[in-house]
Design a protein around this nucleic acid. Structure first.
Lengths: 191, 191
DNA sequence: AATCAAATTGACTGATTAGTCGGTCGCAAT
DNA sequence: ATTGCGACCGACTAATCAGTCAATTTGATT
């Protein structure tokens, strides 16, 4: 219930993540989560009102951690292209370092278990991206495309890269990430 | 069980699709599917060995129908750019015309309910894309990128467009599709 | 030492669900 | 007319699961 730190609470969240990506929602009973976390079922329901709220908490807290990584050191980047490249590469590297968390997002981003409230709260944390996009569009380095498309193009590149590296782990390298970003940037760069 | 045509079988598949995208797997009991399809539960299990096989059948048959659309009239296209554009636009248009089917794919493509067998069979039907990619890479109109990336870049563009149009239905238009494809092609076109 | 609240336990329950099974119906072949 | 068979039915069952609750432990405060 409370969001304060608790070792058992963390253990429950960790077990939930592991089981959920391996077995899916319907094949992950709360009893198994509790067992894996080394607690009683009662403890699980003490910390989380119900199973759905547990998933939502996991979603929100995982996303918060990811976005922290994305924000780190953006201010150090020079021009707008470098700024976008920095955020993008941070995202890809986070995804590679946290495959389970990434898979969880993919599996649950559009699932009915995640409430609208949770979804909105997660979206809010993405605000800082809008500033970057605005800066990009106001510069003269970008084609004249509308902002919503820019945003989805950006996200699409990320998803594409993650898909690609999941299917072909041997292709993971700084060089290929740079290559991908070049392709991406070429697509929208002003002539 | 049999894959032959049967009105009730079709009704079950249709009800499954509708309920699945609305309620998700775990909240769609077979009893409800049967009710919605206007048949008895026994009939459902007569046509499909179990719930999982029902989902797999739906996945496979829906994908087959989609790929039929993608293949249509490709041979009429002229150069390789037009060929790729044709397949891509067919895919996007199919997705827009069949939102439930598309959502179903998104929701279940990486889910544990879809067996490896089903996944492989679906992948096989995509073979014809490989020929197109090979033709593209052998031409001098494309940057020197490796085939696996080309494939995933292609798929990524599709997913991105679908995401974008789902979030912003007012942006659906031939013009925007063409714009997207231009951006895409710009990214990989030889200098 | 006494008090109290929060954390934890796990047996238990009410509800739900996937899948079964004995049997009916309609129809095609002999 | 009889046989056989596949489609179909729906009440039923065995199993499972989310969530409860009364009892116990822990740890901080007075």
């Amino acid at each position: 219930m409370t969001a304060e730190y608790s070792e058992k609470r963390e253990a429950i969240l960790k077990a939930t993540l592991n089981l959920l990506v391996e077995r899916g929602f319907h094949d992950t009973p709360t009893s198994l989560i509790a067992k894996e976390a080394g607690v009683a079922t009662g403890t699980l329901f003490h910390h989380f009102k119900n199973k759905e709220e547990l998933i939502n908490a996991l979603y929100l807290e995982t996303k918060r951690k990811m976005i922290e990584v994305l924000k780190k050191d953006v201010h150090l980047a020079g021009n707008i292209e470098e700024k976008i490249k920095h955020v993008w590469k941070s995202a890809v590297q986070w995804g590679i370092m946290h495959p389970k968390e990434y898979q969880f997002f993919q599996q649950f981003a559009n699932s009915p278990f995640i409430s609208k409230l949770t979804r909105d709260e997660a979206l809010n944390q993405f605000e800082f991206i809008n500033d970057i996009i605005e800066e990009a569009l106001n510069s003269d380095r970008i084609k004249n495309i509308y902002p919503e498309f820019f945003m989805d193009y950006f996200e699409g590149l990320f998803t594409m890269a993650m898909n690609h590296f999941r299917k072909h782990p041997e292709k993971i390298s700084e060089e290929n990430m740079d290559m991908m970003f070049d392709v991406y940037w070429n697509g929208i760069a002003a002539d």
